[in-house]
Design a protein around this nucleic acid. Structure first.
Lengths: 109, 109
DNA sequence: CGCTCATATGAATATATTATCATATGTTAT
DNA sequence: ATAACATATGATAATATATTCATATGAGCG
């Protein structure tokens, strides 16, 4: 995460947005807008984890977790790799951290 | 928006999070996770607007807009001031821009 | 192959959310 | 005070969403 986000860069990013892009944006935030999914993302801040580990950490049943992992994967917020029977999940990129950090900063005020 | 968000600051922000804070965070993102509300926020990037102007810009009926404005206001993403009969809304702070800019960057990839 | 462990998936239910309609509140001007 | 305009609110109906349960798929092992 070498990048910095200054005013100029941010203003550039929010310009010229089509109706479709706004929908995609809303879809993306919708993914962050669920406690279970946020908890999963937070859990993965610690590093790669398999489904069983995530279930244990969140104390939730496996099916619920798998359903939410699928949503996170589809949104490209996490990626997965198989190791034997287990499927390991990890954060897809640094945007996740930045987006959540910004959200947290807002919430804290 | 003089602040910069580097790796150290971001890592600090995402540490030590309680269950309650995670819920608040999910609630916040839920607010961004709706097309109508994202459109309103984008509309307000242009500056302060009253309800009628927002309705015209989004081509949506007044009641729907008012309902969504209330949600945005409750989440402290926008603020309002009355001027005669009209109620003017504007962005509450710069986090909104940053959060949306990060989301857009993710979506664009 | 048959068994076990790990994960994914489909269907069903319960809950939450959004837009609309009807109406209420608030402001200004006559 | 009443009319006209601007906005807010409550109830409803339609739709979306999350979790659970049951079951399917896939991998490793004897």
């Amino acid at each position: 995460m070498a990048e910095e986000y200054d005013e100029k860069k941010i203003d550039h990013l929010i310009q010229n947005v089509s109706e479709d892009e706004l929908s995609d944006l809303a879809e993306l935030f919708k993914v962050f807008g669920d406690s279970t999914r946020i908890k999963i993302l937070y859990d993965l801040f610690q590093g790669e984890k398999n489904v069983t580990e995530i279930c244990d950490d969140l104390e939730m049943n496996q099916s619920a977790i798998s359903h939410q992992l699928k949503i996170l994967k589809t949104s490209k917020l996490i990626k997965s790799r198989r190791d034997g029977k287990a499927m390991y999940y990890s954060l897809a990129d640094d945007h996740v951290k930045v987006i959540i950090a910004m959200g947290k900063e807002h919430v804290e005020e």
